[in-house]
């Protein structure tokens, strides 16, 4: 099934979602966890891992729902509400399974899992998958790549914010103000990847 062409395509999807079309810094999706849980490196890593899991799973589930329920019955206009439903279920299910199977992981991810329901990047990925007419595996890779990109940026940003905490920042820029400025500069830097790949 998979030949060289497919492989390159998947690699391109990953590279595109992680760096070129990064969901946080280029598409500006999922900004609230980006600002909210980037104060400490550990929480950022936890949130990134939880998001990676949910994003991949929910983009696959959304694809299945879209392909086998919405299109055959001509209900494309119900996409948003259906995808929200799917995401909420996936998040809830993941939380239960993680709680049961791995208490250690649950301690790390626990409080972040419910937060992901409201992460617009998750819904964004599901909707973009439909828009770009991705297949099953493409959707999975797109979701996974998006979450890796999200995690990467979140962790980088958290590391910067930890240093900003102790930096000599003018009083009016302290806290979220300097964080937003930093995020803007990071976004500019990531814009430099644009044009690397055309998908």
């Amino acid at each position: 099934m998979t030949n060289i062409n497919d492989m390159t395509e998947f690699a391109l999807i990953l590279l595109s979602t992680i760096l070129v079309n990064n969901f946080v810094l280029v598409k500006f999706l999922g900004l609230c966890p980006f600002m909210g849980v980037s104060r400490k490196l550990e929480t950022a890593i936890g949130m990134g891992m939880a998001t990676a899991f949910v994003l991949t799973l929910s983009s696959v589930c959304s694809y299945l729902v879209n392909e086998y329920l919405l299109i055959p019955f001509g209900l494309e206009y119900l996409r948003t509400i259906m995808f929200i439903l799917v995401i909420a279920v996936v998040v809830q299910f993941t939380e239960m399974v993680v709680h049961k199977t791995s208490p250690v992981l649950y301690n790390v991810l626990g409080i972040f899992l419910p937060l992901i329901t409201t992460n617009c990047a998750v819904l964004g990925v599901a909707l973009l998958n439909v828009q770009e007419q991705h297949g099953f595996l493409q959707s999975a890779f797109y979701g996974f790549g998006a979450s890796v990109g999200f995690t990467l940026v979140l962790v980088l940003f958290a590391a910067m914010r930890e240093r900003l905490e102790v930096a000599d920042v003018p009083v009016i820029f302290k806290g979220n103000a300097i964080a937003l400025i930093t995020a803007g500069i990071m976004s500019l830097a990531f814009m430099g990847f644009a044009g690397l790949i055309k998908l």
Binding site: F73, L75, L78
Partner: peptide, 18 residues
């Protein structure tokens, strides 16, 4: 009607799974 039924069934199935 189809939309209502599909949505209800999907929600029901998800409810059962959860």
């Amino acid at each position: 009607i189809t939309a209502l039924i599909i949505l209800a069934i999907l929600a029901g199935v998800f409810g059962l799974i959860l």
